Amino acid sequence: MATSLVNRTSATNQTLCFFRLSFNFLKSFNTSSSSANPSSTASSSQKPKRKKKKNLFEVSQFLPNWGIGYHMAKSHWKNVSYEITKINLYKDGRHGKAWGIAYKDGIPADAPKKISGVHKRCWRYIPSLSKSLEMKPTSPKSTETAQEIEAQAA
């Protein structure tokens, strides 16, 4: 009878020990998660969500003719831009190759060259340079030659 009592008490001690361990585990889990939640919600409400920057192709996809003839620059560049002359897109539309004329302080370079870093997420469209180039008046020589051609045809 004594052995049965010893066996019974050891079995109850083992079950109590198991319940204590599981209760302590649950208690530590609940306290760590409850203390982490308020701080994470507070930090997320204070910080604005950062906007994902775009690569050259993601910027140019909304421009007419995939941005050919428009000016693009990296966001950290000062007084430097590219006028896009050619774009070679891959099938997904987010990757490819691009060529353009480099402009530094509004002065164009000699010939178009391949643009490096087109997949980096730091490109922006420069509307002021594109509009100024579109609004340039035509040269007086071209209007004079057009008038001469009309006079000869008449």
Rank of each mutant, 00 (worst) to 15 (best):
F25M: 11
P127D: 04
E144V: 01
P140E: 12
K91F: 13
S39F: 09
S44G: 02
Q61Y: 06
S34W: 09
M135S: 08
I87K: 09
Y90G: 01
F57M: 03
W123M: 05
Q147V: 14
E148D: 07
L5G: 03
R50G: 03
C122Y: 08
P38K: 05
S116V: 04
N30P: 05
A151L: 08
K114L: 03
L89H: 02
T9L: 15
T9Y: 07
K104E: 05
F19C: 10
G69A: 02
G67C: 01
K27E: 11
P137H: 03
K53D: 10
N65G: 09
S132G: 12
Q61T: 15
R121M: 05
T41W: 04
D92L: 03
S35T: 09
K49F: 11
A111F: 10
N88L: 10
T145H: 09
S35M: 08
S60M: 09
I115W: 00
S33H: 09
D105K: 12
L26T: 02
F18E: 13
N79C: 05
V80N: 04
K113R: 10
V80G: 01
S33M: 07
R20D: 07
A111N: 07
S75K: 11
K141H: 14
H95A: 06
N55D: 03
K78P: 00
P112F: 03
Y125N: 04
F19H: 11
M135P: 00
S45L: 12
A154W: 08
V118Y: 02
G106V: 07
N13I: 15
G96N: 03
T3P: 04
Y70N: 00
V118C: 13
A2Q: 14
F19V: 08
N13L: 15
Q14A: 15
F25R: 13
A98C: 15
D105I: 00
R94Q: 10
T15P: 00
K136Q: 13
N88R: 09
L133R: 02
I84G: 00
S40K: 15
I149C: 01
H95T: 11
K114N: 04
S45H: 12
F57Q: 06
C17L: 11
R20W: 12
Y125K: 03
R8A: 13
T31V: 06
T9W: 05
A2I: 13
K74T: 00
Y70C: 01
S139I: 10
Q152R: 13
F29K: 11
N65D: 12
A154R: 15
R121F: 03
S116R: 09
V59I: 15
S132T: 04
K97S: 06
R121L: 15
K27T: 09
S22L: 13
A98T: 02
L56Q: 06
L21I: 07
V118D: 01
C17I: 04
S39G: 10
W123S: 02
P140L: 08
A111P: 01
A2W: 12
T143Q: 10
T41Q: 15
L56R: 00
F25P: 00
A154I: 12
Y125M: 01
W66Q: 12
H76Y: 02
